[in-house]
Write a protein that binds this DNA or RNA. Structure first.
Lengths: 114, 114
DNA sequence: TCTATATTTCTACAATCATCGAATCACGGA
DNA sequence: TCCGTGATTCGATGATTGTAGAAATATAGA
């Protein structure tokens, strides 16, 4: 994943409404949610929501499909996975630093992470 | 980790220079790097760098100590770990989604992530 | 104390962001 | 075709961000 892509993805998530929005879509799963339903759920005016949806779309974190008059938005798990992968590889000293990771971690630590 | 904290951490990393800076500090390890060395390495004016260092400090992602005339900055692995933990728990559909994770993953998937 | 070095704070300014009402576009049904 | 609904785009506005030179602060050494 290119670092420019990472910056855009991070920027897209670095906003209260958008973080909540993305979490909502993640919870909703592949079925996704219509823009209107999201607006109600977040308590944000339609035009404001549309702005945030565009930001997340532009960052490649969400996608949408049309269903009649509604636009259904879904989280792009692949993009999020790639983002996390980048952060774990480049921003954790090379060692797996996830707290909840019950992995073996291969023990390649050359420095004490955390 | 509070979602407000997450937003600030994401915002701090969502900038080209700051992402590069943080990666640099992660690579440098616990020894850290002096502000001057960072400025040279990134090719950024001292005052600009100071601004970015303040952003990262404010977000709790880095810390610093004084060594003579130099201020030595270090990455806060704990904060990064907490951030990744939040993202993995809240933004990945509840399932471990890290690509490089060689874990067992407990198979609690209720939806197909990615 | 005086000077040099390391770094931050101050200041100003351009650029980008977030917000939201109004206008517009897209689609389905009568 | 006309109307109603779901959603985006437009436009204006205030707030925040990024940049970098100049000034100020902190420390070390002579």
């Amino acid at each position: 994943m290119e670092s420019e892509t990472v910056v855009r993805a991070l920027g897209a998530l670095a906003q209260e409404h958008r973080l909540a929005l993305f979490r909502l879509l993640v919870q909703a799963g592949p079925d996704g949610l219509a823009a209107g339903a999201i607006a109600v759920s977040l308590g944000v005016p339609a035009s404001s929501l549309s702005f945030h949806l565009a930001q997340l779309t532009n960052a490649g974190l969400i996608a949408h499909r049309r269903d009649g008059r509604s636009l259904i938005y879904t989280a792009d798990y692949g993009a999020m996975t790639a983002l996390l992968g980048f952060l774990m590889e480049n921003c954790c000293g090379g060692a797996v630093c996830a707290p909840a990771a019950p992995c073996d971690t291969k023990d390649k630590n050359e420095r004490t992470a955390a």
